[in-house]
């Protein structure tokens, strides 16, 4: 182990030295000035002439989001929050879902009652095993944000979303998005994620439609390894 550390340090020193030599730090006099010049480049502000905010209002954002998600061949329902339990029950019965995975912190008011015949698999207090998740039929989650410009759902493993495996192994993902969670363009969601990353280092997942491959003669096939079906419910 000691030897490993020595090895690693030698490689590290060697690489750093190569970089400094490549950038001209090794020279004396003129080179020394050059080094401080390149440190200055670090403080140079990147010209961000691109759009960082969108002009769309909430209605426009939701319309655009729906259009883009539908292009990905995901299904979309738009309902009021009171209708959620009934909608979830309807989706589950249409897709023959019996075992539904529920992440910690999901609002219980969203869940259909016992008359739906659904079995809920909860990830707490004990985590579900990979096999239990594989044998489930679907997962129901909320999200952190959605992006209208690209039709993307953003998860950050927060309450009502659960750890990453929950939205990965089940074959069908039902995702609830509140209208006010829909942001306009990509930079806005990165801006909102920044504190989450800095403070918690939470894992972040972007989902833009079900998984897909075009590896065989560029023929698009939807549904490879993640959930093959995605249903977005906008409330």
């Amino acid at each position: 182990m000691v030897e490993d550390t020595v090895m690693n340090n030698t490689a590290k020193e060697a690489i750093l030295q190569r970089i400094r030599a490549a950038l001209g730090d090794e020279q004396t006099g003129w080179g020394a000035r050059k080094k401080s010049a390149r440190e200055d480049t670090r403080n140079l502000k990147t010209e961000r002439g691109y759009r960082t905010h969108s002009e769309m209002n909430k209605q426009q954002r939701v319309r655009l989001f729906v259009r883009h998600v539908e292009e990905y061949k995901a299904r979309v329902s738009e309902i009021s929050e009171q209708e959620l339990p009934q909608t979830v029950a309807d989706i589950c019965s249409a897709e023959k879902v019996e075992k539904l995975v529920i992440p910690p912190g999901l609002d219980e008011k969203w869940l259909p009652g016992p008359e739906s015949g659904l079995t809920y698999l909860s990830d707490e207090p004990d985590q579900l095993s990979h096999d239990e998740l594989d044998n489930s039929d679907a997962v129901l989650t909320g999200c952190f944000r959605a992006v209208a410009q690209t039709g993307t759902i953003v998860l950050n493993a927060g309450l009502g979303q659960g750890r990453r495996a929950l939205t990965l192994i089940p074959d069908f993902h039902i995702c609830v998005v509140r209208r006010e969670q829909v942001t306009g363009i990509v930079p806005e969601v990165f801006w909102e994620l920044e504190p989450v990353i800095r403070e918690e280092g939470a894992p972040v997942t972007f989902i833009s439609g079900p998984s897909a491959t075009s590896d065989i003669e560029l023929d698009r096939v939807e549904g490879v390894h993640g959930p093959r079906r995605l249903h977005v419910v906008i409330v």
Binding site: G151, V204, T205, S208, G209, S211, G226
Partner: peptide
């Protein structure tokens, strides 16, 4: 516009 999955 965005590829299906990004993990950070």
């Amino acid at each position: 516009r965005m590829n299906p999955y990004n993990t950070f």
